[in-house]
């Protein structure tokens, strides 16, 4: 194995470690919300600190390898994808924090009845994150494509949640602050799914060398 390959493997391990933290941050934030658990919110903030540190380490390592190894072809695609995935993971960490903050808000307000479909939406988003990282590790284009398709389901669920929440606001104006918090959570979960989609697009660029962002391939042809 080339020395460079060992360094690429190390970079991949760091990305996986970071994605593990991000997965934990997201699932913890949603549990904090459903169980209104202050301690779990604190744990999300701790995860975010570690995610931020890893983001800097991964950026430094990828930039160093670009400068010193001047990679080509699949090595080049791996490094540019790693930099973009790193950025998406860090943003997902921020969104988990946003959910935890909304959970803290809700703890100080009178409880409202349903959390509508938010746990279901969270499950979809987490599954997308898990799949896109699997597709990255296994360089599996088919799995990455599954993630792209799943995003539509998350978007539809968010629209449905907004509809239910708007009705709830009309019916219970006194509880509007809580419902606004829940809207914000649904929006954050939708954004998490969007970042998972970005990662799946990066995986397709890595494995097949094609750019599917914003229907780029269609535009080119």
């Amino acid at each position: 194995m080339r020395h460079f390959d060992e360094e690429l493997e190390e970079l991949k391990s760091k990305l996986l470690e970071m994605s593990g933290l991000v997965e934990s941050a997201i699932s913890t934030s949603v549990t904090a919300l459903t169980s209104l658990d202050r301690q779990l919110c604190e744990r999300v903030f701790e995860y975010e600190d570690r995610i931020n540190i890893m983001e800097i380490e991964i950026d430094d390592m990828a930039t160093r390898l670009l400068a010193l190894q001047q990679p080509m072809a699949s090595d080049l695609r791996f490094l540019t994808s790693a930099i973009k995935i790193n950025n998406d993971l860090e943003r997902m960490g921020d969104l988990a924090v946003k959910i935890a903050k909304r959970a803290l808000d809700l703890m100080d307000l009178p409880p409202v009845k349903p959390l509508v479909d938010i746990p279901e939406m969270a499950r979809l988003a987490e599954s997308m994150l898990h799949k896109c990282l699997d597709s990255f590790v296994r360089r599996d284009s088919a799995l990455a494509r599954e993630v792209l398709v799943s995003d539509d389901g998350v978007d539809d669920t968010r629209v449905e949640i907004f509809r239910v929440l708007i009705r709830a606001m009309q019916a219970e104006p006194a509880n509007i602050p809580q419902y606004v918090d829940l809207m914000s959570v649904a929006r954050s979960l939708e954004r998490i799914a969007d970042h998972a989609t970005n990662i799946a697009e990066d995986v397709l660029f890595l494995t097949e060398g094609i750019d599917v962002r914003h229907h780029a391939e269609t535009r080119k042809s």
């Binding site: 080339r2 460079f4 990679p71 080509m72 072809a73 699949s74 090595d75 080049l76 695609r77 060398g209």
Partner: peptide, 17 residues
């Protein structure tokens, strides 16, 4: 050639493998 070569031999040569 340098971003997405089609042939395995090209990929191996330009990536130093």
């Amino acid at each position: 050639i340098f971003k997405t070569p089609a042939r395995r031999e090209t990929e191996d040569y330009i990536t130093g493998r």
